[in-house]
Amino acid sequence: MILHHDVDAVVLDIEGTTSATGFVLDVLYPYSRSAFGTLLTERAAEPEVRRAVGQVRDLMGEPDAGAARVEAVLGAWLDEDRKATPLKTLQGLVWAEGFAAGELVSHFYDDVVPALRRWRDAGVRLHVYSSGSVAAQRAWFGHTPHGDLLPLIDGMFDTETGPKREADSYRAIAESVGVSSPERILFLSDRTAELTAARSAGWRTTGVRRAGEPYCQEDDDGHPRVATFNEIGLVNSTRGPAD
């Protein structure tokens, strides 16, 4: 059965939704862990690195923490899978270089890219909202097995916009996207708390429950659910059906 929505825009989560969480944990996290030491010592003067390190020190409550101490805390946060904004910023810098160098290639489930192209052809705008930094998102969509997918994406948002479990974050995104009303936006995610926050902001929602993903058995809290993007049919009222 196909779940139909009439929307102007779709906002996508990445981990567990478009892409395998295991790839992020097993490939990207170790890659960033191995690169943090060099980043914190050799590039400490770069404005984005300096700002993120300052945020790490603030969260630690240790304003004078040195590079080794910051690196240790970043490693601990990786072990916790903590969604700390400065961690994601520093990961994004490292990953962007890895993707650009050809050392990393992103992962997408087989059903995702054809669906994104169908939806975009139908006039539905595509956006991303992930705990990973915008830099990491750009690298992810720019270096895929399917080539550069950035031309498909109209905008990207990270936790600089706000936490993914707070409705105000989705209100801010809706204002930025510029839709006529929030119910013209569909949010796709594997996390129920994120879907509920988006629903509280007036968005349409659908839970993506992929077999084998860590949160595939979460309670749906009344959100529609699908197993793949092939079960989603989008209609833009100004352009017609996407399928």
Rank of each mutant, 00 (worst) to 15 (best):
H4L: 14
H4P: 15
D6Y: 09
D6G: 08
D6T: 15
I14G: 04
E15N: 11
G16M: 04
T17G: 00
T21S: 14
T21L: 15
F23G: 06
L25D: 11
D26N: 12
Y29M: 07
S32L: 02
A35I: 01
A35P: 01
F36W: 10
R43K: 13
R43P: 03
R43M: 08
A45N: 09
A45C: 00
P47F: 07
E48N: 03
V49P: 07
R50E: 15
Q55T: 08
V56F: 06
V56A: 04
L59C: 03
E62R: 15
D64F: 06
D64C: 01
D64K: 11
A65K: 05
A65H: 04
A68G: 08
A68R: 08
V70T: 01
E71D: 09
E71S: 01
G75D: 09
A76H: 12
W77Q: 12
W77E: 06
L78A: 07
E80F: 09
D81A: 11
T85R: 12
T85H: 02
P86W: 02
P86F: 02
P86N: 04
L87N: 05
Q91C: 07
G92A: 02
W95A: 02
W95L: 04
A96F: 05
A101F: 08
L104N: 03
L104R: 05
H107M: 05
Y109C: 03
Y109K: 03
D111Y: 09
D111E: 09
V113E: 11
P114G: 06
P114C: 09
R118L: 15
W119Y: 14
G123Y: 05
G123W: 01
V128A: 13
V128T: 13
S131T: 15
G132F: 09
S133K: 07
A135E: 14
Q137W: 06
F141I: 00
F141K: 00
G142W: 02
T144R: 04
T144G: 02
T144A: 07
P145K: 01
P145D: 09
H146S: 14
G147R: 08
G147L: 06
G147D: 08
D148P: 04
L150F: 00
D154H: 10
E160V: 11
E160T: 14
G162P: 02
P163H: 05
E166T: 03
A167V: 00
A167Q: 10
A167T: 12
S169M: 02
S169I: 02
Y170F: 11
Y170A: 03
R171N: 03
A172Y: 04
I173V: 14
I173K: 04
A174M: 05
P182N: 06
E183D: 15
E183R: 15
E183P: 09
L186D: 14
L188I: 13
D190S: 13
R191S: 04
A193Y: 10
E194C: 11
A197W: 12
G202K: 12
R204Q: 15
T205V: 15
T206W: 01
G207V: 01
R210D: 01
R210W: 05
G212H: 04
E213P: 00
E213Q: 05
Y215I: 00
E218C: 04
D219H: 10
D220R: 14
G222K: 04
H223R: 11
P224H: 07
P224C: 06
P224V: 05
R225Q: 14
I232E: 02
I232W: 10
G233W: 11
T238Y: 10
R239W: 13
P241W: 05
A242Q: 12
D243Y: 13
